[in-house]
Amino acid sequence: MAFEVRSEQFDGPLHVLLELIQEEELPITEVSLASVTEGYLHYMDTHEVPLAELADFLVVATKLLLIKSQAILPVKVEMEQEDPSTLALQLRLYKEFVDASKLIEERFDHLNQSFERVQADVVKMEKGEVVTNVIPTDLAQAFTGLLKRLEPFFKLQTAAMERVVSVKERLREIHDAILSRTKMTFRQIASGGKSKVDVVVSFLALLELVKQRAVSVMQSGVFDEIEIKRVD
């Protein structure tokens, strides 16, 4: 992927040629093309041309070499009808587009731009029953009904809150108890419990203490007494 990004930004062979000629401030002719041949070959040596464009670079290189060899060889050999001026012509045309692209770029950078209208999303109304003859007490009743339906949700929340608090409290109780006694059983702790939830909370508190390494527990068999010892 990195390669692809690079090849999109890589200047094409004609651009390289154009820059070479413009650096020398030469007109775009066969003669000047011949004179920048070495510069072009040097560019190919020193730059890593993307593979996708390598062939295009080589085509231009061979054309340059052909032009140069024709310029050097004194004998005018009637070559195939490969007109060397094609490259010069091509380059001249290319330059015109390069120049034009600068104008386009200016317009891109300019803040003058138009916008199309953003089409509004059409939301279709569902056909619902239209209620008539509503009096204020109906609304009050509806609201009371709504509150009633929400009740279980609120209950659930307070219950959860209580439990969290009691696990903490129970944890402290057990911790305090074990400090004075060094050894006790789970039955002793749970015996004060009023409900099943209480026992569960006690157990959770005990597990938490084990995790904190405040106590160690031992149970000799299934459903046997859990012995709690203080860890010193």
Partner: peptide
């Protein structure tokens, strides 16, 4: 985001 020079050239050729 800005267009790369090769992209701009190509766009110019297509526009004209």
């Amino acid at each position: 985001g800005p267009l790369t020079r090769p992209s701009l050239e190509t766009l110019t050729i297509i526009a004209y």
